[in-house]
């Protein structure tokens, strides 16, 4: 059984029903994945914010610490949005961020960059994460979209049977 539930039982009224076996969850794989990406984003963002100098050195990205910190802020914001109840915009913002990262790393992948090898590895990692982001975005939009809900018509559901009868009688008499 879930440890959180067991811990919370301490604060629960002693005689209230207790969970003995857990069942299926409403948490979809899409949301779980978005949350995973969200935490990853926050972690990476904090590393970019506070480790900008060493990251710049590793990538041969001279005089660009503030740019890396800016990217870090972006990552943290995207991560927070991924953890929200509607992770779609957060994952979309991650994909946009991935595109920016790819462009930046591609520009750094010059022959004269002594850290070219590190840049290529980083580029490979970003491409992999971009693929995950895109899969997640597709899953979130399929599972959590409204689909063709707008095509439902409830114009026959007045809920006021007597009033409807009176209106019909009035109409008949006219």
């Amino acid at each position: 059984m879930n440890m959180m539930v067991r811990a919370a039982d301490i604060a629960r009224w002693p005689s209230d029903p207790k969970v003995t076996q857990t069942g299926r969850s409403s948490l979809t794989e899409a949301v779980r994945m978005a949350r995973g990406l969200g935490w990853f984003s926050i972690g990476l963002g904090l590393f970019e914010l506070f480790g900008a100098r060493s990251l710049a050195r590793t990538l041969g990205f001279r005089d660009s610490e503030w740019l890396i910190r800016g990217y870090g802020l972006r990552e943290v914001a995207s991560g927070l949005a991924c953890l929200s109840v509607n992770p779609g915009p957060g994952v979309a913002s991650r994909i946009a961020g991935d595109a920016l990262d790819i462009v930046t790393l591609a520009a750094l992948s010059r022959p004269d960059n002594p850290k070219k090898r590190n840049v290529e590895l980083a580029l490979l990692a970003v491409l992999g994460v971009t693929l995950l982001d895109m899969l997640c975005q597709a899953d979130v939009s399929i599972r959590h979209s409204r689909g063709r809900s707008g095509s439902h018509d409830y114009s026959d559901r007045s809920g006021l049977p007597r009033r409807l009868k009176e209106l019909r009688t009035e109409l008949d008499s006219v």
Binding site: P17, K18, V19, T22, G23, R24, S26, L27, V31
Partner: peptide, 8 residues
């Protein structure tokens, strides 16, 4: 977003 049908 995590509701489960549990045995209690």
């Amino acid at each position: 977003q995590d509701i489960r049908c549990d045995t209690v």
